[in-house]
Simulated scan of single mutants.
Amino acid sequence: MQTTLLRYTDLPINDRAAFELVCARHGFAPAHFDLSICADPADAAHERVITVRRGGWAQSYYDHHGRWVKEFEADLTCRFFR
């Protein structure tokens, strides 16, 4: 498995716009989070795993064509990253 550290600006435009909107809705800036993407070429069903980190907290999401942003927002709503 290969892990690539990215800034949110390295995300595809749709994911980046959704990530920015979700962050703003919850009082954060995208720069408050560190992102990494892990691609598993042996698992075509899950194209990427995106890990979001803030402080000592981290959560990983399966991409599922952008669905990870909705799951990330659910975690923000539950104050997981506060």
Rank of each mutant, 00 (worst) to 15 (best):
Q2E: 10
T4N: 12
L5S: 15
L5A: 09
L6S: 01
R7G: 07
R7W: 10
R7L: 13
R7Q: 13
R7A: 12
Y8W: 15
Y8Q: 07
Y8R: 05
T9K: 10
T9V: 15
T9F: 12
T9N: 10
D10A: 15
D10S: 15
L11M: 12
L11Q: 01
P12H: 12
N14L: 12
N14T: 15
N14Y: 08
D15C: 11
D15P: 01
D15F: 01
D15K: 05
D15T: 05
A17G: 04
A18V: 02
F19W: 03
F19A: 03
E20I: 13
E20T: 07
L21F: 13
L21V: 06
L21Q: 13
V22E: 03
V22R: 02
C23L: 01
R25E: 11
R25K: 11
R25F: 13
R25G: 07
R25P: 00
R25T: 08
H26C: 00
H26R: 06
G27L: 07
G27P: 07
G27C: 10
G27D: 06
G27Q: 06
G27A: 11
G27E: 03
F28M: 02
F28Q: 06
A29W: 06
A29H: 09
P30E: 05
A31I: 09
A31M: 06
H32C: 08
H32M: 05
H32D: 13
H32F: 14
F33L: 03
F33I: 05
D34G: 10
D34E: 11
D34L: 05
L35P: 00
L35G: 01
L35V: 04
L35M: 06
L35N: 03
S36A: 12
S36N: 05
S36C: 14
I37L: 14
I37H: 07
C38I: 02
C38R: 14
A39M: 14
A39R: 14
D40W: 05
D40Q: 02
P41T: 12
P41C: 06
A42D: 11
A42V: 15
D43W: 15
A45R: 06
H46Q: 14
H46V: 15
E47Y: 06
E47L: 11
E47M: 09
E47G: 13
E47N: 04
R48G: 00
R48I: 00
V49T: 05
V49R: 05
V49H: 10
V49W: 08
I50C: 02
V52G: 00
V52N: 02
R53N: 05
R53G: 02
R53C: 08
R53F: 05
R54Y: 00
G55P: 03
G56N: 04
W57Q: 13
Q59K: 15
Y61P: 00
D63V: 02
D63K: 13
H64S: 14
H64V: 09
H64A: 11
H65T: 11
H65F: 09
R67Y: 14
R67W: 03
R67S: 08
W68K: 01
W68H: 02
W68F: 04
V69L: 01
V69T: 00
V69I: 08
K70S: 15
E71T: 10
E71R: 05
F72C: 04
E73Y: 09
E73N: 02
A74M: 12
A74W: 06
L76S: 04
L76N: 03
L76T: 01
T77V: 04
C78P: 02
R79D: 09
F81R: 00
R82I: 09
R82V: 07
R82M: 10
R82S: 12
